[in-house]
């Protein structure tokens, strides 16, 4: 009796995912080289994750990194069409999985590297020039909302993982010590320079991070000023918010704005 293609694929796949041997009777001559598929499945996932998380691989070493990837893919069997997205949930999984959650620098490194990767190949869009803001009528400012470049991504980190990661991916440097903890978690932003296409990152001040969070949710410039007023020492939150916005424009973060009679 022939096996349906659906049943065969389910059993073959369960062999790779769970080591289930139900596929064995379906193989010709007992499938002496089935081990090639067993090995290739794990090896490919580890290889791809190592490319996406080079700093994490260095931090953990080969054996522990392989353990992490194996446990992660067991918890999150791959469903994405493109292997590009395999590591999407790694940082969140590390942060909540007991063996790794006790060392938050591990999840921080994964979050940082995933952020850099997102920025690297995010879709292209044309940033607004800073000069465009001069054309916004004063009365339109309070209700302005902003759209950001797809390459702009953020991560809240409790460890200074950037120097370690830079050294890990460099051909000239070696990481010399584990990432140190920050006094308080800090929001980091990564983005791709629109001209050089180089991914850059920096830490955000508390008020800037909150303002960006509000803006990314679609809140108005007026609401963004209120956020800044709550968090900074400045006497004039609008001036401080405008200054932050100017920095965003200079970095190519803003690709659109909407307001009464304005849609750029």
């Amino acid at each position: 009796m022939t096996t349906s293609l659906s049943d065969l694929q389910k059993k073959f796949q369960n062999r790779l995912l769970h080591g289930d041997d139900a596929v064995d009777p379906l193989l010709g001559n007992g499938g002496p080289f089935m081990k090639v598929y067993d090995h290739a499945y794990r090896a490919r996932l580890i290889e791809v994750m190592s490319q996406d998380f080079e700093g994490l691989h260095t931090l953990l070493g080969d054996a522990q990194f392989a353990d992490v990837v194996t446990a992660y893919v067991n918890a999150h069997p791959p469903r994405q069409r493109s292997i590009r997205w395999l590591g999407k949930d790694l940082a969140a999984w590390l942060a909540k999985t007991p063996a790794w959650a006790e060392q938050p620098m591990i999840a921080d490194m994964a979050a940082f590297e995933w952020m850099l990767g997102l920025s690297f190949d995010a879709p292209d869009e044309t940033p607004l020039q800073a000069s465009a803001m001069a054309k916004v009528p004063p009365e339109a400012w309070p209700m302005l909302t902003f759209t950001f470049h797809p390459s702009l991504n953020t991560a809240l980190l409790s460890h200074d993982v950037a120097p370690f990661q830079r050294a890990a991916v460099s051909e000239d440097e070696e990481p010399d010590s584990a990432p140190a903890p920050f006094a308080e978690p800090i929001t980091w932003a990564a983005w791709r320079d629109p001209n050089t296409m180089i991914v850059t990152h920096r830490a955000l001040d508390i008020d800037e991070a909150a303002m960006l969070h509000a803006a990314a949710k679609g809140e108005t410039f007026d609401a963004m000023c209120e956020v800044v007023a709550d968090l900074s020492d400045t006497d004039d939150a609008a001036v401080r918010a405008a200054s932050i916005l100017r920095a965003w424009l200079d970095c190519g973060w803003v690709v659109g704005l909407d307001g009464e009679g304005i849609s750029w």
């Binding site: 659906s6 796949q13 995912l17 499945y41 791959p78």
Partner: peptide, 18 residues
């Protein structure tokens, strides 16, 4: 891959009319 999963490998097919 099948049944919602993706093994990210080029897996063999049974050589049948079906």
């Amino acid at each position: 891959g099948a049944h919602g999963h993706n093994m990210h490998d080029l897996l063999p097919l049974p050589l049948t009319e079906a």
